[in-house]
């Protein structure tokens, strides 16, 4: 009986967590988007909103569809995840394992980056990116975020949980630090990589403000910016907007579902054991 109650409560919470999203999907599949329904099942089912949303960017440029935004988001996200994992884990490794002058300075520098509101750095950052000629380019969207203080911190914490004996053995055999990093540490830290990978994926996929200021060319827009197109000055097209939001959200949910089994185990040690 008590158990049943627990399931009931959990199912209710699960429903509450999902219902806003279900409502979003339902609205996107409904025919009439003027009148908002409270139902989670569309009354008149249609995919029209998706087709319209997909082709909507053609208004601005004939060659651009929602697919262009998808491609841009994918390119930016893949580069940020792979490059970011590499850079962060490299730094995290020496901070976790090595002693050298300025070690804690470097560590605190990484932590400090977490405390700086992005808006503090936005304008000078924009000027730098502009100076490099990176406006409307992929590197303008990617390079400034290739390393993150959070990633470095997470990797450092995780690497500290890996028994040092393995490394010492490799060291005695005469292997270099980079070899040890690549062949010993990285394979052992798969959960940490998966966890950070997911977090970086979500962050890159959902970033909004920076693409907003460094891309002006519609061909370079990412998905989150694409969504803003449906919100005109005077008229908002809710059907198209919810369809676009659903399309933009689907990949994040898929990626999470695919990798989630690594996710929890990665967090176990990563963020916690000091």
């Amino acid at each position: 009986m008590k158990k049943l109650l627990l399931y009931l409560i959990l199912t209710l919470i699960a429903f509450l967590m999902l219902s806003p999203l279900l409502w979003m999907v339902s609205t996107s599949l409904s025919k009439d988007s003027v009148i908002v329904s409270t139902s989670l099942i569309p009354k008149e089912f249609t995919l029209e909103n998706y087709v319209k949303a997909w082709n909507f960017p053609r208004i601005f440029n004939k060659d651009v569809t929602f697919g262009t935004f998808f491609l841009n988001s994918i390119i930016v996200t893949v580069c940020l995840v792979i490059g970011g994992l590499f850079f962060d884990s490299l730094a995290g490794y020496v901070l976790a394992r090595k002693d050298f002058p300025g070690r804690s300075l470097f560590f605190y520098a990484a932590l400090i980056t977490l405390m700086i509101p992005f808006y503090v750095t936005a304008i000078p950052m924009f000027l730098i990116v502009k100076g490099l000629g990176w406006i409307n380019t992929y590197q303008g969207l990617i390079v400034p975020f290739l390393s993150s203080g959070f990633g470095i911190y997470m990797f450092k914490q995780y690497f500290q949980t890996i028994p040092i004996e393995l490394e010492e053995a490799a060291k005695i055999d005469g292997y270099s630090d980079f070899w040890i990093y690549a062949r010993v540490i990285v394979p052992l830290a798969k959960p940490a990589f998966a966890t950070m990978g997911i977090l970086k994926f979500l962050w890159s996929w959902n970033m909004f403000f920076w693409p907003l200021i460094v891309t002006t060319d519609i061909k370079m827009k990412v998905l989150q910016l694409g969504l803003t197109m449906f919100r005109g000055l005077n008229v908002t097209q809710w059907g198209l907007l919810t369809a676009g939001m659903t399309m933009a959200t689907l990949p994040t949910i898929l990626v999470y579902l695919l990798f989630q089994r690594y996710f929890t185990s990665g967090l176990i040690a990563g963020s916690l054991k000091g």
Partner: peptide, 19 residues
């Protein structure tokens, strides 16, 4: 080039003027 209102085109023009 047309810049949708939701992207705050005036801010973009402003930064373009500065640069």
């Amino acid at each position: 080039m047309a810049i949708p209102w939701a992207e705050e085109p005036h801010n973009k023009f402003q930064t373009a003027i500065v640069s």
